[in-house]
């Protein structure tokens, strides 16, 4: 009886250990899988050519990723520029100022923002953001803009990463002990002074790490961006032109690529680029966040 119980315990332990290790290895398997699939194109062209060429003619075997990379960077940049101040201020308001009752109203709103699927934001973008840009905003700056632009994609993306940023910031701020704030208040500092000179200072690394996490999230966002970016293979000159980020490239060309091995390989290479960037950004920022949490606990 006793031995059976012990045996059961050991068996369970071994099974769970295997399960855990398999899931850790999954990250590596994913990378290897994507790499193997993109090997054909990497064998044919140099990495530098792929990344720096702006000629994209799959039928002729030309695969230059530059327009897509630039598009991704533009869109992500706009999204962060828009979302960062709003989410930082929102997070500060919620942790440093708001009464519990206010928090109870704001959190569900952020929950909803976080929960809405990408395709819903895509619809919102096409129906609300795109017309506003093409009719109201763009005429002030350029002659014509379809509205399906870098700016539209950036705005939609900014809204989508907002709840992520807010919750990461809140998490980071809440590690700062209350005594530290009290020490500052007791010297006559206002709430904002305390926030700026103590809380933000103490959590600076965490804020950067959180932002990097949000950037990596923005990198990979697909459907919503695809719906409002315009999908034109050019390098955008300004934010009122169309662009074509990497995830949109992958999603849009699935299917037609099947007939051409090199084309398929090129798209898998695009996925590999996303994977590597996200992997590096995530690992770095998570390590920073773990460390902060540990140090302040």
């Amino acid at each position: 009886m006793q031995t059976r119980r012990i045996f059961k315990d050991r068996l369970a332990k071994e099974t769970m250990l295997v399960l855990t290790i398999v899931s850790i290895l999954f990250v590596i398997v994913m990378g290897i899988g994507l790499y193997m699939k993109s090997a054909p194109i990497l064998g044919e062209k140099s990495l530098w050519d792929l990344l720096s060429s702006s000629q994209w003619r799959p039928m002729k075997g030309e695969f230059g990723f530059l327009p897509f990379i630039v598009g991704t960077l533009w869109v992500t940049f706009i999204a962060i520029i828009l979302a960062f101040p709003v989410s930082l201020l929102t997070a500060i308001f919620l942790t440093e100022y708001a009464k519990p009752i206010v928090k109870k109203c704001v959190f569900p709103a952020l929950d909803i923002l976080a929960a809405l699927p990408s395709v819903i934001y895509g619809i919102w973008g096409t129906l609300v953001i795109v017309p506003v840009i093409s009719e109201k905003l763009a005429p002030h700056f350029v002659e014509y803009s379809s509205g399906y632009t870098v700016l539209a994609a950036g705005m939609v993306l900014g809204v989508m990463i907002l709840p992520l940023l807010v919750s990461l910031f809140i998490e980071v701020f809440s590690i700062v002990p209350l005594e530290l704030r009290e020490a500052s208040w007791a010297l006559g500092a206002t709430r904002w002074q305390t926030t700026r000179k103590v809380v933000l200072r103490k959590t600076f690394a965490g804020i950067i790490a959180s932002t990097v996490l949000a950037i990596s999230r923005a990198f990979g966002e697909t459907i919503a961006v695809l719906m409002v970016c315009g999908c034109m293979i050019t390098i955008p000159n300004n934010i009122f032109e169309s662009c074509y980020p990497i995830p949109a490239l992958i999603a849009n060309n699935y299917g037609e690529m099947l007939s051409m091995p090199l084309y398929e390989s090129a798209l898998m290479f695009a996925a590999l680029i996303l994977f590597v960037v996200v992997l590096v950004f995530n690992i770095l920022s998570r390590i920073v966040l773990y460390r902060m949490e540990k140090k302040l606990n």
Binding site: P177, E179, E182, A183, A186, A189, V198, R201, K202
Partner: peptide
């Protein structure tokens, strides 16, 4: 608060 100084149980140096 400026007029009233505070020393806590655990010292709390600012960062």
């Amino acid at each position: 608060r400026r007029k009233i100084g505070l020393v806590n149980q655990r010292p709390c140096p600012l960062p």
